[in-house]
Write a protein that binds this DNA or RNA. Structure first.
Lengths: 348, 348
DNA sequence: TCCTATAAATGGAACGTTCCAATAAATCAA
DNA sequence: TTGATTTATTGGAACGTTCCATTTATAGGA
């Protein structure tokens, strides 16, 4: 074994005393070859230490078996879970997903997409980086490579999207807080360059409206979507003249930040101020106090995105339906009733 | 644009009125072609919506420009940070890193490695899955593809390894606890099928030995390397006849778990029981109380691994030196002095 | 026996690049 | 002018597969 130059099917053919075509057939598991021959060939494959050259094969074959997953922030466990969900499905389908990280940088994203295209990917699942320009995927679309967006959408594009029902999730969470007796509510974190932000904030506002929370009693604090951002949001909120008693946070990271800031002030989330997160990452359950959060079934959405992609590839189309995933509110300890005015709150 | 069949350099050549060789030269940025010609060709490239076919190119070229990163658990932020560190370096070197996740499963790892090899990667950086068999990389080695292990090593292999100085880190942390007056110490989490476990536990034991902690006063509790595992460890430890007053944890996840379990018992990490973690993930600083932990410079190790890989590729060798990264103890709030016997502790 | 039908194996022409050797054009020295 | 040199460009043969159209071997039917 271990010849310096790498072995090809021709070497195998020579070793096994058959033609290269036969070897190719064996590699593809064709039923046309005699079992004994197949065994002979497979032995030769072992002996020469052959590794299949997919690049060469793709030159002839219509489609490759690799799919690109482009993720905006791999260090965020939320997106990592998404990636893992997709992987499960692809693995079962014999497709190899390659993950690339854009670190929330559109330029890097451009490079990564170019590379993936050059490798001849069969499809692309993308959670676009913040600030992605509307035309960023034009070229890929015209090249006929299917794309699916996951978790985030671009303002106008016609590319299919898999996201949780952000609006509904925010409504659920907000209703929950109001039913707990809170009358002055805040929305923490996020910024308006994200479509998701508008969806979640929209749900919050709608629920406030419906359940009769006056505009003056809603506080919206934009901020980084991180722990740090959450801490800042809480400080801002408590500095207000009539501070809120509860907050729906853009995501769990913001919520964790808010809870941390509370503890620094010797306040307890749940008892002194209600906090609800969004995404329900694994950590939420293990926090103390445990975080009430909107569960979006991240892994499930990843699987769904993968399925849609597989179907698109199979039917060689570049169109597909959007998919809005169901959400549910997981009530834990961080969202207690309003206690700011004892005797007045009508907690449910 | 957007012709159904994808454009090749021949189409470009026709469009620009030159030969395919000229186009190829332009694509490679050769200085041999006349600037005006290059401009003409580049315009044609735009017009026909060309995407480079790296598979075809690799058929002729010696080496590809893709590197595989095989990570055992992408949902662990620690490994995600490692991956991100590597990416930084590779990007700058014009190399495209493809990340694949093995989910700590040797079978999956085998598949992933096979795929990567078939794609013709120039090198492989691997954080091996638990339970990887010693021979798992034999084939890749004999194929002459350089491999670097990151964070974890295999028991016997000669493959270069990039890891933090686990032994020293554990010594530092243990000395710290002892100097804080603790006399009954525990080591929480991990299991002996991991080389890293032995390194860290070894440091712990050595420091105990050196500073005169009797064997009877050391408690070793194996467990899952997760929050859940950490919680279990703490319960086990406190159930002992003479429970420890401090613990060094296998990693931060275990430490977080232990702190959680403490809180559930209405005990406070730092005040009632000292906890030290390992790895110093971003979260450690933002926990409450903030976690004392051994910082290993994850991103830096990733960069280092990437550099080693690049050098190996360049010098077409399959050997390289191991690299043991410096560690430091970051003291925060979770590791207070021993208060179990007031008046007796000689806290420093 | 010969002919036909089926099964198994094969040669050769792609696929889209790179790169060498060769050509064509422009420049220079004499 | 001629030949030598440099500068730009080009055809053609790889690279390692797949797949179609054939060929060869095997079996079955008369």
């Amino acid at each position: 074994m271990a010849s310096r130059a790498k072995a090809t099917i021709l070497d195998i053919a020579r070793e096994a005393g058959v033609s290269k075509s036969t070897v190719s057939l064996v590699l593809q598991g064709s039923g046309l070859i005699r079992p004994e021959t197949a065994v002979k060939v497979r032995k030769a494959i072992e002996d020469v230490g052959y590794v299949y050259n997919r690049g060469a094969a793709n030159l002839r074959k219509a489609h490759s078996n690799v799919i690109g997953m482009v993720i905006n922030d791999l260090t965020n466990p939320f997106f990592a879970e998404l990636a893992v969900g997709m992987e499960r499905v692809f693995q079962a389908a014999g497709v190899v997903p390659f993950i690339a990280n854009t670190a929330e940088n559109p330029v890097r994203q451009e490079e990564v997409l170019k590379s993936l295209m050059e490798q001849g990917v069969a499809g692309l699942i993308v959670s676009p980086a913040r600030g992605t320009t509307p035309g960023a995927f034009r070229r890929i679309e015209t090249a006929g490579v299917p794309i699916v967006f996951a978790m985030r959408r671009l303002p106008d594009s016609r590319i299919p999207v898999i996201t949780p029902d952000n609006h509904r999730g925010a409504v659920l969470a907000t209703e929950h807080l109001i039913r707990k007796g809170h009358r002055r509510l805040a929305f923490f974190g996020g910024s308006s360059d994200l479509v998701v932000y508008h969806e979640r904030l929209g749900g919050f506002l709608e629920a406030c409206q419906t359940l009769g929370i006056a505009a003056a009693d809603r506080l919206i604090v934009e901020g980084e979507t991180s722990r740090k951002g959450g801490m800042a949001c809480l400080e801002t909120a408590l500095a207000a003249a009539e501070p809120p008693t509860a907050a729906l946070c853009f995501n769990d990271a913001v919520a964790f930040g808010a809870m941390l800031a509370l503890r620094r002030r010797n306040l307890e989330a749940g008892a002194d101020f209600a906090v609800v997160g969004f995404d329900d990452v694994a950590e939420a359950e293990h926090y103390s106090p445990a975080l009430t959060s909107v569960a979006v079934d991240t892994g499930g959405l990843g699987e769904r995105a993968a399925h849609v992609m597989l179907k698109m590839i199979q039917s060689r189309t570049t169109r597909a339906e959007d998919h809005i995933g169901a959400v549910s509110l997981v009530v834990r300890e961080s969202s207690g009733p309003d206690r700011s005015k004892q005797g007045m709150g009508d907690a449910a």
